[in-house]
Design a protein around this nucleic acid. Structure first.
Lengths: 121, 121
DNA sequence: GCAATAACTTACCAAAAAGTAGGGAACAAT
DNA sequence: ATTGTTCCCTACTTTTTGGTAAGTTATTGC
């Protein structure tokens, strides 16, 4: 058993899972991987079905875990953008592989998927 | 949106997640990746904390999704073993990467992890 | 001044995932 | 005959996760 931040993990895969587990984290991360940096609103619009609560909660956790960086790009009209940190970028092979595997799966099962059809703006 | 088996997915990453999401699936798959094939009991002993319910439930889903193959190796004393199917093996880069990333993370944070310390038999 | 927009937060509720505890068939070993 | 082992299944409960809806602050544009 591995202990880290008061939680126990069974193996290194489990440790990694601790950072990216759950319904939304990998989707947010991979979205940032393809789109570089996005505002809160852009993220919400491009993650169909996510609620504001989930988005801010997950972003907060990703920030805490240093996978995502939040930059305040303007103070007077308060505007931010989110992007992958170096740590977040170190998971890039994962985003690439999981996307590729998904695309391949869809192809092999005759479901047509147009690149970026999930981007709404 | 992508529709597949009555569920909807937001992007290819989400599709992949549909197969390996949850607390146990990646742990089971990566265990099978490193150990080739295991009996039900061996799996249970090497996935600390898993309940029998979870193990059989997840194995069943992995079988249904064709990521894992169950072979009856003996009928008279009923013995089986589980192993990765070709489809399951096609996810190998994932097991390798996630394990490597976890090990690296632990190393960088001064937590010592001995290779295979999670194997109990 | 008033509606609109960005970037959130909060309280509350529902659903899904996981855990607990037990049972049970089939054989093997003593 | 009794105990142990493998390989599960089922009902029930708890925990975790996620969803809904509303509210908040600040600012821009008309």
């Amino acid at each position: 058993m591995i202990t880290l931040n008061d939680k126990t993990y069974t193996c290194p895969v489990d440790v990694t899972l601790g950072f990216i587990g759950g319904k939304w984290k990998l989707l947010i991360l991979s979205h940032l991987h393809w789109q570089q940096q996005r505002s809160y609103t852009q993220l919400r619009e491009n993650l169909p079905g996510i609620s504001e609560k989930m988005l801010s909660q997950q972003l907060k956790e990703l920030e805490r875990d240093l996978l995502v960086t939040k930059s305040v790009i303007s103070r007077k009209p308060y505007r931010v953008h989110y992007s992958l940190s170096e740590e977040g970028k170190s998971l890039s092979p994962l985003y690439e592989f999981m996307s590729g595997w998904g695309v391949q799966y869809l192809k092999e099962h005759g479901i047509d998927y147009v690149q970026d059809q999930h981007l709404y703006k």
